[in-house]
Design a protein around this nucleic acid. Structure first.
Lengths: 127, 127
DNA sequence: TTTAGAAATGAGAATTATTCCTAAATAGGA
DNA sequence: TCCTATTTAGGAATAATTCTCATTTCTAAA
């Protein structure tokens, strides 16, 4: 546990959203100007391996890192553009039973409308 | 519809598995040595946009391209290392109902054991 | 404390995957 | 056939990430 790693960990834990390596690097540099981007990447990888944080791969930019280790899904909203957490329990068990497979981990990325934008859309349709 | 695009399309349609852009480029080059990698990438993007083929993003290498447009999931097997198709119908509707969202598209990547390796594993445990 | 060895860092080069640029080639309709 | 808009080949550029390695920092034994 180096000062660098502590700082990176703290930044992720104090942030609600989903940070990219570069964003984490920027925040870290503000507190420790000497920190290197490679150090951020290396520690992020180690933290993901140690299951301290979660890595979110997307099809529209850099990977993002999430403090929330509870299995959950990610929705990239076409309405507001945000990357939104969707909690949807029991998916692992559902997959294992239906697919006759063993699930070590999974990642579900949805593109569509988040609850807020979806509600707005329905309203518009009804009007 | 250029000769290049026809060739790329044919390669994907004649292949069961999941090809990377580079693999497609290799196969295409065998038939048309002058073809360029950029042409492969451009046409793959266009085909994905036109929903002729499906793009699979993964966390362990380049994107892969799949002729199978029926919604299905991908399992990266820890046992045999293969990228396996898992058919698991009705997930879109399940997500929309439970999450109060609109699903335009989704991608579910599972890491674990495929049906074959999972069956083997169970056998070992029982013995 | 020193000090030896191990581990981690900083800085930047290297790699990987992909997209962009541009002059030349080509498709396909008149 | 001719014209023009589109596409291509080839290579440069970009973005994200990993690697390399000399230097620094940590650890724990002397």
């Amino acid at each position: 546990m180096t000062r660098q790693r502590q700082l990176i960990y703290k930044i992720i834990m104090n942030t609600e959203g989903h940070l990219s390596a570069d964003e984490i690097f920027s925040y870290a540099k503000a507190e420790m100007p000497s920190i290197a981007l490679g150090t951020v990447y290396r520690n992020l990888r180690l933290m993901v391996e140690d299951k301290e944080i979660r890595q979110i791969i997307t099809d529209y930019g850099p990977d993002r890192y999430d403090r929330n280790m509870i299995p959950h899904e990610h929705l990239h909203c076409d309405g507001c553009g945000k990357l939104v957490d969707i909690t949807f329990g029991g998916l692992k068990e559902l997959l294992e039973n239906k697919g006759e497979i063993a699930v070590a981990d999974y990642q579900l990325n949805i593109r569509g409308l988040c609850p807020v934008c979806n509600a707005k859309q329905k309203k518009i349709r009804v009007q």
